[in-house]
Design a protein around this nucleic acid. Structure first.
Length: 650
RNA sequence: GCCGGUUUAGCUCAGCUGGUAGAGCACCUGAUUUGUAAUCAGGGGGUCGGGGGUUCGAAUCCCUCAACCGGCACCA
């Protein structure tokens, strides 16, 4: 006998091997009908599984949040069956549940096209309507391999081989179709319902390895009901509206063109935004850092010394004279990183331990030859500006410096409204330089710092460890922030480096007169300023806070009678340091309101005969249909207060 | 880099099975002097992504290159 505890606390005994379905039916036939799976001690399993031990039991109905994952997983199976029914000879591989849906990877000589999706979707609905029960078999390894080999499913054979000895091979059937799968599944295909949609086809490498064959992946989304599906699709539309590439065009911030793949043409408004960010960062650095500027183009030999020519060459732009090359055959490279340049600055002249920590910052423009398929608007470019800094310090100062950087990073993010931050510690990778003792020490220090970071935040900052993800020269912290619509972006980074200073023979003279290589800490807060600008565009959906808005105020006239006054207002605002423009065009005020609202200008000052006579303005703020009237002086004071950057308002 | 898709006016897009381009918005001109999300009328604008080919004839079919989009891989 086994004892099962029910959600209400009741405990009952059953014969060993009783299935979840039997128990549900025993309670009520309607419960059995509604139940799609069960959870034993919190682990979701097939309802038809015999229960062999004491456990807490819960019945998972289709409305249960836990059913969603099952719906998606079942949907993936149905997708695979539909594809094999419509396209015989297609091999199945894997089909997991992902955020918001699922996918399935297929191997087929001719890849699927978007036009195939409606057909496949229709077939899926047909299979769901058949409502065949999901049933499970346990097969021996040999049988599984034999059956799949006979079916021509080479990838499944490979998957069977990869499953560790002693682990059972579960085969799930739905009608005549079956698949190797770890499960669990619902009771029948009919439970999936109709709230799903195939979204896109894409290429994907077998097992995520670019050396392997390219498979065709079909992505789908699935939900418990039509409302949830509609809501999700609506969310996608909303996300598209705030896409920085779209807003960049609509708000006239920047553009790209064919001749410059991955490099940005910043327009006046976009550059204003970019410069507001730089100005902000500069103010934040003023207290502790010295700003420098290292050359764009440096001899190959320097990159050989730094090691970049060895392990980063594929990503570097080589530069040579375009004229008479016999005159100067030297090979140069456009800098992909600022660190070697900063080491040269550190090296110049003798440094004492008294000079440490030495913090060199640069808004360094770097160029990296990113793979063509990786380029994506401002988010992934080939030429960008890092808010970079390198801190040269002693080993003893390392922890303190990391914490200082942490404070700077977190307060910066907070100023932009990013409060949900995860700090991840990446530890030693397989391929690395330096002795294990050095790594042991560095990782120990970093772990302590990570704990301190979590403690200081009072638990607000989440931390994580990524084993093996560190840079080859040292462990690193990665700062991930979450934007207004829940997406995560890795921006800041702090990396300790025991390697580069030595490669360049950089040292400082210690108190005892000996020469020692400094520890170098690489650190960025925004990371790429271009990318960070892109993140802000999407985070704010173009509705920037006043201090960042490229065009803060537009003064619009109602009739030409107010022109002179409007000019006066704009001059006053500009003199006070606001970014103000005038709109004296011979258009109706409704037209102007609409236009500037679409351009996402935060503040619109409307002036007519009345305002001109009284020296007032009518203020209309973006997103609000209301207006308030006040004197120009009052409005100016309000706007100035509001336009003050957060670091200057503290 | 790999797989698939896309590329027509400044923007969004139409253009069927080949007969050498069209809409809306934007722009320009004129009229209108207007009170908080589109005033009316007229006009200009495209070597249909580049190159090559098939054809009497190509935006349309084929090849090729490029950029972009969606994924994958990459992301020091």
């Amino acid at each position: 006998m086994i004892n099962l505890t029910f959600p209400d606390g009741a405990e009952r005994s059953f014969a060993e091997g009783t299935t979840g379905f039997d128990i549900a039916k025993g309670i009520s036939p309607s419960l059995a009908k509604r139940t799609v799976a069960m959870a034993l001690d919190g682990v979701t399993t097939d309802l038809a599984d015999p229960i062999e031990r004491d456990a807490r039991i819960e019945f998972v109905t289709r409305d249960d949040p836990r059913a969603l994952e099952l719906i998606r997983h079942d949907c993936a199976h149905v997708l695979a069956e539909a594809v094999q029914e419509l396209f015989p000879g297609t091999q199945v591989t894997i089909g997991p549940v992902i955020e918001n849906g699922f996918y399935y990877d297929f191997a087929r000589n001719e890849p699927f096209t978007p036009e195939d999706l409606p057909k496949i979707e229709a077939k899926m609905r047909e299979i769901i309507a058949r409502d065949k029960p999901f049933t499970k078999d346990i097969w021996s390894r040999d049988k599984a391999k034999e059956v799949f080999r006979e079916k021509g499913e080479a990838y499944k054979v490979e998957l069977v081989d990869a499953i560790p000895e002693g682990q059972s091979l579960k085969i799930y059937h739905q009608g005549d179709w079956f698949d190797l799968c770890r499960g669990p599944h619902m009771t029948s295909t009919g439970k999936i319902g109709n709230a799903f949609k195939l979204m896109k086809v894409a290429g994907a490498y077998w097992r995520g390895d670019s050396n392997n064959a390219m498979l065709t992946r079909i992505y789908g989304t699935a939900w418990r009901n039509q409302e949830d599906l509609d809501h999700y699709l609506h969310q996608l539309e909303e996300a598209e509206k705030r896409d920085h590439r779209r807003l960049g065009r609509e708000m006239d911030l920047f553009h790209f063109q064919e001749e410059g793949p991955g490099v940005v043409f910043w327009h006046p408004k976009g550059w204003s935004l970019f410069q507001s960010l730089i100005a902000y960062m500069r103010r934040r650095l003023a207290a502790d850092y010295a700003e420098v500027n290292a050359p764009q183009v440096l001899d190959k030999s320097l990159w050989e010394t730094s090691g970049h020519w060895g392990w980063y060459k594929e990503n570097m732009f080589k530069v040579q004279s375009a004229g008479d090359e016999t005159e100067d055959e030297r090979v140069f490279a456009l800098k992909p990183m600022n660190c070697p340049g900063h080491v040269q600055i550190f090296k110049h002249g003798l440094k004492s331990y008294r000079d440490l920590p030495m913090r060199l910052a640069e808004f360094g423009a770097v160029h990296r030859y990113e793979p063509s398929g990786a380029l994506h608007g401002l988010m992934r470019v080939r030429g960008f500006t890092q808010d970079d800094a390198h801190i040269f310090c002693t080993e003893e100062q390392m922890a303190e410096e990391c914490l200082k950087i942490n404070d700077l990073i977190l307060s910066t993010y907070a100023d932009f409204g990013f409060e949900e931050i995860v700090v991840k510690l990446s530890t030693r990778p397989e391929k690395r330089v330096g002795s294990d003792e050095v790594w042991d020490h560095a990782e120990a220090v970093m772990s302590r710092v990570l704990e301190e970071i979590a403690a200081r935040s009072g638990g607000r900052i989440k931390t994580d460890i990524l084993p093996g993800e560190g840079a080859f020269y040292g462990p690193k912290f990665e700062y991930t922030l979450r934007d207004a619509i829940g997406r995560e972006w890795q921006c800041g980074t702090t990396q300790v480096d025991f390697n580069l200073p030595e490669r360049f023979g950089a040292f400082y003279v210690d108190a005892d007169g000996t020469k020692k290589p400094p520890v170098m800490i690489h650190r960025a807060i925004c990371g790429s300023m271009e990318r960070f600008t892109g993140i802000l565009i999407e985070h704010f959906a173009g509705h920037f806070p006043l201090w960042l808005a490229p065009s803060q105020v537009v003064v619009a006239t109602i009739t030409s009678d107010a022109d002179a006054y409007a000019e006066d207002v704009v001059a006053t605002l500009k003199a006070a340091g606001l970014r103000a423009e005038k709109d004296l065009r011979n258009e109706k005020i409704t037209y102007k309101v609409r236009e500037h609202s679409l351009a996402k200008v935060p503040v619109l000052l409307v002036v007519g005969r009345k305002e001109a006579a009284e020296r007032t303005v009518s203020i209309r703020r973006l997103g609000s249909p209301n207006q308030t009237s006040m004197t120009l002086d009052e409005a100016l004071a309000d706007l100035l207060r509001e336009a003050r950057p957060p670091d200057l308002s503290r």
